[in-house]
Structure formats: C-alpha cells, structure tokens
C-alpha cells in the first residue's frame, strides 16, 4: 500500500494507506503506486484521484497550488487549498 498524505496550511486533509494516487503535475498528470522512485514536482490546479484498492472507483479531491513529493515513506501533496 502507498502512504498518501494531503496537507494544507490549515490542516492535514488526508493521511491514508491507498492503492494509487493520480496527481495533476505541472508537466502532466502522474500516477503514484507503492515503491515509486523518489520524485518531486510542482502541481497545477486540478483534481487528485485517490484509488483505495485496485479497480475501485477513484475519489476526487480538488486541489490548488502546491507541490508533490514522493519518497521512501510515500507520497506527500502539499496544497494551498484542498477539498
């Protein structure tokens, strides 16, 4: 499972174990699964798609402004606004 955190300046919006997250990167969307290589990208305003399990219907969270970081611990999205 991938550890996914979505953090805004006001609070931690989501901190979950999920299957896959699709993030709207500045240079194009990218999907993160468990074991993704270390990666850092700015994001554009758009929707983060969170898939709890393989094949499950994705949950959409609208985010604005920020960046995403993938490291050994998982995926962290820092956004100015979420939800």
């Amino acid at each position: 499972m991938l550890h996914f955190e979505l953090v805004t300046p006001e609070r931690i919006v989501r901190s979950d174990e999920v299957h896959m997250v699709t993030v709207p990167g500045t240079d194009g969307d990218f999907a993160v699964l468990e074991g993704h290589a270390p990666f850092m990208s700015t994001i554009r305003d758009g929707d983060v798609l969170v898939q709890k399990a393989p094949g499950a219907a994705p949950e959409t969270i609208a985010i604005r402004g920020g960046f995403a970081e993938v490291n050994a611990k998982g995926l962290t999205v820092l956004a100015e606004h979420a939800g």
Binding site: M40, T42, E80
Partner: peptide, 30 residues
C-alpha cells in the same frame, strides 16, 4: 532530514530551480 535528500536519483519536474522558485513565495506566505 528528508528521506531522499541524500539520494542522487530524485527526479525533479520541471527542474530543481523551477520548483524552488515556486516554493519560496509559498514559504514566505507560510
């Protein structure tokens, strides 16, 4: 203290400079 900071294989998109330029104003705001 970042887990991947010492790791040379971190990929940056668009580039380290661009990300930094984007983050600095946010840092002031925060």
């Amino acid at each position: 203290k970042l887990a991947n900071a010492g790791d040379a294989t971190v990929e940056y998109e668009p580039s380290e400079e661009a990300i930094l330029a984007d983050l600095l104003p946010r840092n002031v705001a925060i």
